[in-house]
Write a protein that binds this DNA or RNA. Sequence first.
DNA 1: CTCCTCACTTACCAAGAGGTAAGTACCGCA
DNA 2: TGCGGTACTTACCTCTTGGTAAGTGAGGAG
Lengths: 117, 117
Amino acid sequence: MAKAPRNGPYICGIDAALDVVSGKWKGLVLWELHTYGVRRFAELRRALPGVSEKMLTQHLRQMEEDGLVHRKVYAEVPPKVEYSLTESGAALNEALRPLGEWGRDRIRRDALDVVAG
Amino acid sequence: MAKAPRNGPYICGIDAALDVVSGKWKGLVLWELHTYGVRRFAELRRALPGVSEKMLTQHLRQMEEDGLVHRKVYAEVPPKVEYSLTESGAALNEALRPLGEWGRDRIRRDALDVVAG
DNA sequence: CTCCTCACTTACCAAGAGGTAAGTACCGCA
DNA sequence: TGCGGTACTTACCTCTTGGTAAGTGAGGAG
């Protein structure tokens, strides 16, 4: 039985992987942490255009629970919290790389809109 | 401007890819079509334990719209419809392979429940 | 004294995802 | 005659996702 998965039981690996990355901002958080190594809460918020604080904390908590990110709290004032990828999170990011390339192809192919920047 | 993406505009490729695979059964449909090449509606329904007919048609229509699957209708009675992957769908499946492996690792690592069979 | 920043939490609300059940039109089998 | 299989559509309902707005508590800038 062990630990209960969010939406288990799973039928295959794709299932199990999509379960932890589904969530409007999780892919971006993963990407941001991969790019910068360590990021604070407010830095992530600024990096994700349009994210609400509620969703960001919610996603970060779930990702921590799923063993993707590490959360380091400094007992300071003002508060300081640093997020970084765990080994598992970094591996997930590697596994997402071909998917990201496919997505870029799709954007090119279909001339889809991309957020300005 | 071009074609409107389902949840665009996108921030990166991961976004664009996750958009077309998010949906409770899409990963499985992709996998099933990849494994068997061509499948009929009822075969897919039987392959996905617990899927409702509504969701299956809905997902298949979206995937057709997204250029992932090809739908071939035979003007017969009783009706016969065959689904298969397009080139783009097959490429997506390839791109999902490392993700599937990561997922299998996760299942092993955390001893998660898997559907019986 | 007031506002801003940090990293949240909480309450409330709207939209959408997904489930159940029924209907459709025709055929073959018993 | 009536049931099951073919591939759906439609209406209705619930649960989840995600957004908005406000509150928290201490410190530093103006």
